[in-house]
Computed example of a mutant assay.
Amino acid sequence: MEDFLAISECSTDELTGLLEESRSLKALYKAGQRDLCLAGKTLAMLFEKPSLRTRISFQVAMTDLGGSPIYVKPEDIGGIGKREPVKDIARVLSRYVHGIMARTFEHRTVIDLAKYADVPVINALTDWSHPCQAMADVLTIVEHFDRIEGITIAYIGDGNNVARSLAFAAGKLGMKLVVASPPGYELDSASMETANHFAPGCVTQLDDPRAAVADADVIYTDTWVSMGQEDEKEKRRKEFAGFEVNADLVAAAPKHVKIMHCLPAYRGFEISDEVTESPNSIVFDQAENRLHFQRALLRKLMS
Rank of each mutant, 00 (worst) to 15 (best):
G67L: 05
K172D: 04
V121M: 01
I111R: 14
K73L: 07
I153F: 03
Y155F: 11
A61E: 08
V110M: 07
G66E: 06
P50G: 05
F168V: 04
I156L: 03
S57R: 02
E106D: 15
E75K: 03
H130P: 10
M45V: 07
A114V: 09
D64R: 06
I77Y: 14
R103D: 07
E48L: 00
V121F: 08
Y155V: 01
L173M: 02
H144C: 11
A163N: 09
R91H: 10
P85W: 13
R55D: 10
A102F: 03
A61M: 01
R55N: 07
A114F: 12
Q59M: 15
K115A: 12
H107V: 06
F168D: 01
I151Q: 05
V72R: 00
A117R: 07
H144W: 02
V92N: 14
H144Q: 09
C132M: 11
A44S: 10
P85S: 14
M175H: 01
D76K: 13
V142H: 13
R53E: 00
M45I: 01
Y96K: 09
V92G: 08
T152M: 04
Q133H: 15
T63P: 01
M175S: 03
L43V: 11
G174K: 02
V162I: 12
V86F: 10
H144V: 02
A90Q: 04
I153P: 04
Y116E: 07
V121G: 06
V119H: 01
D158N: 13
D158F: 01
G99N: 08
A124V: 06
A134H: 03
P69F: 00
S51P: 10
F105W: 14
V121Y: 11
I70Y: 04
I56K: 08
I153V: 12
L93M: 15
A117F: 00
I141K: 01
R55K: 13
G171I: 04
M62A: 02
Y155A: 02
Y71Q: 02
V110A: 03
V60A: 14
S51N: 14
K172Q: 05
V138Q: 11
G159H: 00
P131D: 08
Q133G: 07
